[in-house]
Design a protein around this nucleic acid. Structure first.
Lengths: 289, 289
DNA sequence: AGATTTCTGAAAAATTCTCTTCTAGAGGAA
DNA sequence: TTCCTCTAGAAGAGAATTTTTCAGAAATCT
């Protein structure tokens, strides 16, 4: 038998071939590895929300004699880990050296998160949530060369949450067309990190002259557009790379989506349900094609 | 009861009042703490050279309901020890209450990061880096309804780093056209998180039959596409929201971009310079920094 | 030394755990 | 649709663990 493999390795190695309930179990076991696997089979099953036979079956699938055998291996691993002083937990990806790009990147992202969140003003966050939750205001979203993806992500979610959301094409030639449709009180959500795009400033000015509220996602240095912004989020985007990291920006975007969704849960829920129905219909339609 | 004391502290605290057999047991338990206490009561008794009643009695003496209770405490301690201290940040956004969505979201994202990185296999990461750095292989990128943005982000960066990168439109009707252009050894990068898209599985099968390497970004539950994947990254995507969090996926994507960029720095640098020239010529972007 | 108390482990009882079997049900194929 | 295969959990049999009981051994006290 492949005695040298850890339980975690065995699980990951055949994760793809596991069934639904088994994956659910595998996840719980990996989530708080190895502690979550050290209780009784009943406890493990309950924690994972599966039945005990599922646990027993998976243990055998992984090549163990039975669940007790799997558990004995877990204990042995734990023993080996604990008695080995080199196995320290100050690394993110425990299996990679701390000079590995994964760990260096994780350090950078953590620092970005810490600094960004330490400086963020909850009042601004709440104010933006209120703006985006207001059905009287249409929402227009725009991004630049790199941030286009973030704008798209934000748009996709907002579109489900509420009506009146527009994604502005990233080609600046057509921007005046979009401005035509903006009205006073509307919200323009702009993503602009270095290298800041000059046309974005123009767009902000045009929108500003129409009394549109400008919400800006930018970096720690601040896009020139910030001058015209009603509210802006400055994220740190340092990374051990030739590019900047958008992770923290995405984090704020997702938090904001969650906040708006909560603020307007009744409507969001109804829209999500309607969307489910539409998906089902599409699926049905496909069958005949 | 002194619920906050560890098992070890309880043992040491009343070591003087323990009997001979109990001290013998206590020593064994403290020797390989806490692993030696995690087996069955029979195993613990045998290891220590005492009888099982002695073990049960000491558990009660130490203030536990019984041996299983003591063991549960051991597991809880172990869990607390293993949890990354970095995640135990009281509040991320210091100015906001810890019940604020920003702080709740930050907790969730940190936990996702910790668990995902703890499980990631650097060999897989390195193998994927090598695949993507290989100029002999074309790279095709595809995402689903939500993950389209991530695919787009990945594509935008890879396009700068190297040639031969294609973004597959998210409309699955046209996918067969793209498969036509795939050749053996090419790399197909797939983003698929729940709700998994059925057509994605078909695409993977089509690509697989042409001997295309499949790199999959998915969630902890694993897209059905994983069965066909050469390498896959399972990210935790839990969030206090009706939606899932893509932050960790973006993190891995960015790390991978950085790794590929480093692996092929000569070429990447040249391409970035050429890009600068093109930007200047088209006057599309002006520098502010 | 003898009496008393405390301790210890064997054995049995009670409980819990683990595995096997079986059926309902989901999902896919014809 | 209808059939088939695979999956997942309920139920129960069997095995283990844990606890209790109890009697002998060891330690302590008078």
């Amino acid at each position: 038998m492949r005695q040298d493999l850890t339980v975690a390795e065995r699980i990951r190695g055949r994760f793809d071939r596991l069934t639904r309930a088994e994956r659910q179990l595998a996840n719980t076991m990996l989530a708080n590895y190895p502690v979550s696997g050290l209780g009784s089979i009943t406890a493990v099953a309950e924690t994972s929300g599966v039945s005990t036979p599922t646990v027993a079956r998976m243990a055998k699938k992984l090549g163990f004699v039975g669940f007790p055998d799997l558990q004995a291996n877990l204990r042995a691993e734990l023993q080996a880990t604990i008695s080995n002083p080199i196995a320290k937990h100050d690394r993110w990806a425990e299996n990679a050296p701390d000079t590995h790009i994964l760990n260096r990147f994780a350090d950078a992202v953590m620092e970005n998160m810490r600094q960004t969140l330490g400086q963020i003003n909850p009042d601004v966050f709440n104010a933006v949530t209120a703006l985006l939750s207001d059905r009287g205001r249409s929402v227009h979203v725009v991004g630049g060369r790199i941030t286009r993806s973030l704008a798209d992500y934000f748009f996709t979610h907002m579109q489900v949450i509420r009506s009146g959301v527009t994604l502005i094409a990233s080609n600046s030639n057509t921007w005046p067309h979009y401005v035509l449709n903006m009205k006073a009180g509307d919200v323009l959500v702009v993503f602009d990190i270095r290298r800041y795009e000059h046309d974005m400033l123009r767009l902000a000015e045009m929108a500003g002259s129409k009394d549109v509220k400008l919400v800006l996602f930018t970096d720690q240095w601040g896009s020139p557009t910030a001058k015209h912004a009603t509210h802006s989020f400055h994220s740190r985007i340092e990374a051990p790379s030739a590019w900047d990291s958008s992770v923290v920006i995405l984090f704020i975007v997702e938090s904001l989506i969650a906040a708006v969704q909560t603020a307007t849960w009744e409507e969001t829920r109804d829209r999500m349900r309607a969307l489910e129905v539409l998906f089902d219909q599409t699926k049905l339609f496909r069958k005949f094609v």
